[in-house]
């Protein structure tokens, strides 16, 4: 446990000491939100979204998802860099278990994601969301679960990778589509048939649904047609467990 804590703490210290990462992980989603939300609002409305909900408001939970995704990507890239720098080799010959290493890495990434996601929550009033203390707790809980699952998923990939170059390609082919098809961008109900199916199979769809439902805990009618809260939370927790076990198994195989 001491080792897990040390690895977790190291991720955070490294993050704080690399300011460009902090700016990148926060400014980029903000920019996306302003450009996409602002650009779409005049001409388009996500089909199937509640009529009185603007695009800025519809994209808002989706952008929180993007913040989590970026943070997860950044912290898993760190694993590839650790391997290249030799730091990981030093960890691998220490007595800490492979599961412990993965847990430290995943918790580090999750913590950073939650902090940045929470920072984004401060913008909630701009889209007319007012959060009760209970709702804030629920939202942060969902953010933490989604972040843990995404970071673990990133670790599954990162532990197989030798270089960061290959990593970017995999990232764009797997992680970005997972986000785009999660209901963050457009609701499943308005998507073409096969796309709708993909979205229902996408575990992140349920994370995004849970996030939406918790953000609009006081006004469920504003959420539109997304999966209900309890199943969404359960699927998200299962996503966490599966992704974490897969990451640990991958770490065990790469000695």
């Amino acid at each position: 446990m001491r080792g897990v804590r040390a690895l977790w703490w190291r991720e955070i210290v490294r993050f704080v000491r690399q300011r460009s990462r902090l700016v990148g992980a926060f400014a980029q989603p903000l920019l996306f939100w302003l450009l996409l939300g602002g650009g779409f609002s005049a001409s388009l409305r996500p089909p199937g979204a509640p009529a009185d909900l603007g695009t800025m408001a519809y994209f808002y939970p989706g952008i929180i998802g993007l913040v989590l995704l970026f943070t997860a990507i950044f912290s898993t890239i760190a694993v590839v860099e650790d391997r290249k720098s030799g730091f990981l080799q030093g960890v691998l010959v220490s007595p800490i278990s492979r599961g412990g290493i993965v847990l430290g890495q995943a918790l580090g990434g999750t913590t950073l994601a939650v902090l940045q996601g929470a920072l984004f929550l401060l913008l909630a009033p701009l889209v007319g969301i007012s959060l009760s203390p209970g709702a804030i707790l629920a939202v942060v809980g969902v953010i933490a679960a989604v972040a843990f699952a995404l970071t673990s998923l990133g670790l599954v990939i990162a532990w197989r990778m030798e270089s960061t170059q290959g990593f970017h390609a995999i990232m764009n082919l797997i992680l970005m589509p997972i986000w785009i098809l999660s209901g963050a961008f457009f609701p499943a109900s308005g998507a073409a048939g096969w796309l709708g199916w993909l979205m229902q199979l996408n575990p992140l769809t349920y994370g995004m649904a849970a996030l939406r439902r918790c953000l609009y805990l006081g006004a469920p009618e504003a959420v539109g047609r997304v999966p209900a809260l309890v199943p969404s939370v359960l699927v998200t927790l299962a996503f966490c467990a599966v992704a974490f076990c897969a990451a640990t198994a991958t770490a065990r195989r790469s000695r």
Partner: peptide, 17 residues
């Protein structure tokens, strides 16, 4: 880890053990 101080590196290593 170049981003950590000498002491932090040692502390991290000690924790792993």
């Amino acid at each position: 880890d170049g981003k950590l101080t000498v002491r932090e590196n040692l502390a991290c290593h000690a924790a792993l053990y």
